[in-house]
Simulated scan of single mutants.
Amino acid sequence: MDLVWLWIPATLAAAAAQTARNAMQRSLTQTIGTMGATQVRFLFGLPFAIVFLVLVGFATGERIPSPGPGFWGFALMGALTQIGATALMLAAMRARSFSVITAYVKTEPMQVAVFGLVFLGDPLTFALALAVLIGTGGVLAMSWRPGMLTEGGLQPILLGLAAVALFGLSAIGFRGAVLSLAEGSFLMRATTTLVVGLTMQSLVLGLYLALADRTALIASLKVWRSSAKAGFMGALASQCWFIGFALTSAANVRTLALVEVIMAQFVSRRIFSQNVTRQELAGMAAIVIAVTILLAFEPVGD
């Protein structure tokens, strides 16, 4: 199989790992707060990312690639916007159901397609546009509830939509960073970008919490077992996302990642005891159609 198609299993693995990590972080917000749970994916994920980099270097015999023009700017853009997006998403999840907020966040492919065209010159084909529209429609159908604009107030919706925009910019930033590395295989470039991004994020959030919310930082260290599990799943998800970004456009990756909404529905039912309705099943069907269009007609590779 052509290696370029590895973005498909990598994206599916990323979606599964991210669903697990989001559920873990959502649970942690109840004990260590939103910012404490936010930094868990970064601070506790960094050691695992370093292990990934060592293993990749050992397996391939490659050295860490040299940064090309724009690498640091793209990496910083991805790192900072991902911090903001994660904090906003977790804040929204405290007020609304896990699956509904996950659905909001998964309207991201629309922004990613536009951002990718503007910042990286990634093509926006008819097949991709159609898949994005159908998939986004399915996501909205799954999340819509009578009175949802007034139930619980507008704040969770606004937080979710703001998280969407930042997650979109984060995807573009990290893909730009991967592409800006001057040498190395897609696996080495993806893993190097992961370590750089998590290092930036750990430093920024660690400094912020040390100065502004030391209680949350100490609390996350006290529940280190739960934090380490969430950190590992976060690092694993990011590793797989970055592999996808190294092989195809961020819009392709994020559109296929809509399957995470279906995974979140399973988690909501099994863990948070939230039922799945016919409307949600119809939305899932639309997502499956969108993914089918993407895989059948959208070209892959850089």
Rank of each mutant, 00 (worst) to 15 (best):
T81Q: 08
A127R: 08
G45W: 01
I218K: 15
L194C: 07
T60P: 07
L198W: 04
R189L: 12
G116E: 03
F232S: 00
I289N: 07
F58P: 01
S226D: 13
L46V: 04
A59C: 04
V195W: 00
S249E: 09
F119I: 11
G173K: 02
M142W: 10
T191S: 10
G152W: 02
R145V: 04
R270G: 12
F167W: 13
R225Q: 14
A16C: 07
G147I: 11
R254G: 06
L28K: 02
A131E: 05
R175S: 06
K222Q: 15
V259G: 05
V118N: 04
A246C: 11
W5L: 13
L130F: 12
A127C: 06
T31G: 07
T277C: 03
R41N: 06
L209K: 01
L203C: 09
R254N: 14
I172R: 10
L217E: 01
P69G: 11
L80H: 03
G61T: 09
P47T: 04
F74Y: 15
P69Y: 10
I271A: 12
M1H: 05
A17Y: 00
L154S: 11
A237C: 00
A182W: 09
F52C: 10
T292F: 12
M200D: 09
L53E: 12
L281D: 08
R254H: 15
P146M: 05
R225H: 15
G138D: 06
W5G: 06
V223E: 04
L46N: 02
E298F: 08
G160W: 01
L187E: 12
G160M: 00
L209S: 03
S220Y: 06
F186G: 13
E280C: 02
V276W: 04
M1Q: 13
S27V: 07
L3Y: 14
T248A: 07
W144F: 15
S238K: 04
S226P: 06
Q239A: 15
